[in-house]
Computed example of a mutant assay.
Amino acid sequence: MTPATLRRLSRYNAWANQRLYAACGALDPAEFAGPRPSFFGSIMATLNHALVADMIWLGRFTDRYDHGITALDQILHDAFDPLARARAELDGVIIAHFDGPMGDLEAPFSYRTMAGGAAVTPLGLTMLHMFTHTTHHRGQVHDMLSATPTAPPVLDFVYYLRENP
């Protein structure tokens, strides 16, 4: 894992979120928040979870970001516009964090899990996990969009790379 790769992933993350949120913004509120067969139960709840998880990981990576999250399924925003604003703001914070010094990416990284347990994983790979976790949940939302009148956007990393060489 290199700092350059993590910087690129922070930008891809924002790009993919912008595209996904643009599609979700076309949904009426009932489609956005309505129940769907999925782990978190709706597009709104899944997007909230991805936001919550990124806030938790960023909070673990830096002492400067106090997230105040108490549960992985916490709903921070139950309407699209405030959720989209929070996502865009956090994506900017993530990019700024990864543009700065990241420390020894091979070093063990100690943190507390949401259940209160202690965990130690390699710093760089843990940072990579933050991005793959969000990608996983974007895929779930992408699938849920397929059952709506709104077409899911292309989110593949190679498309980002073609647009951002």
Score class of each variant (00 low, 15 high):
Met1Trp: 03
Arg7Asp: 05
Arg8Asp: 13
Arg8Ile: 06
Leu9Arg: 00
Asn17Ser: 06
Gln18Gly: 13
Arg19Ile: 07
Tyr21Leu: 15
Ala22Tyr: 08
Asp28Arg: 13
Asp28Cys: 10
Pro29Ser: 13
Pro37Asn: 12
Pro37Gln: 14
Ser38Arg: 08
Ser42His: 09
Met44Asn: 11
Met44His: 09
Ala45Cys: 05
Ala45Ile: 01
Ala45Lys: 13
Thr46Ala: 10
Leu47Cys: 10
His49Asp: 05
Met55Trp: 02
Ile56His: 01
Ile56Lys: 04
Trp57Lys: 00
Trp57Met: 12
Arg60Thr: 04
Thr62Lys: 03
Asp63Ile: 00
Asp63Ala: 14
Asp63Ser: 11
Tyr65Met: 00
His67Ser: 14
Ile69Glu: 09
Ala71Lys: 12
Ala71Tyr: 09
Asp73Ser: 11
Asp73Thr: 07
Asp73Arg: 09
His77Asp: 03
Asp78Val: 00
Asp78Trp: 02
Ala79Cys: 06
Ala84Met: 05
Ala84Thr: 03
Leu90Lys: 03
Gly92Trp: 02
Val93Gly: 01
His97Val: 00
Phe98Val: 01
Asp99Tyr: 03
Gly100Leu: 08
Pro101Cys: 09
Gly103Ala: 10
Asp104Val: 04
Asp104Tyr: 09
Glu106His: 13
Ala107His: 07
Pro108His: 11
Ser110Trp: 08
Arg112Gly: 02
Thr113Glu: 11
Thr113Leu: 15
Met114Val: 12
Ala115Cys: 04
Gly116Asp: 11
Ala119Pro: 01
Ala119Trp: 07
Val120Ala: 15
Val120Phe: 06
Pro122Gln: 06
Met130Gln: 10
Thr132Gln: 12
Thr132Ile: 14
His137Thr: 04
Gly139Gln: 08
Gly139Lys: 04
Val141Cys: 09
His142Ile: 04
Ala147Gln: 14
Ala151Ser: 15
Val154Arg: 12
Leu155Arg: 07
Asp156Met: 03
Glu163His: 08
Asn164Gly: 02
Asn164Ala: 06
Asn164Trp: 08
Pro165Val: 11
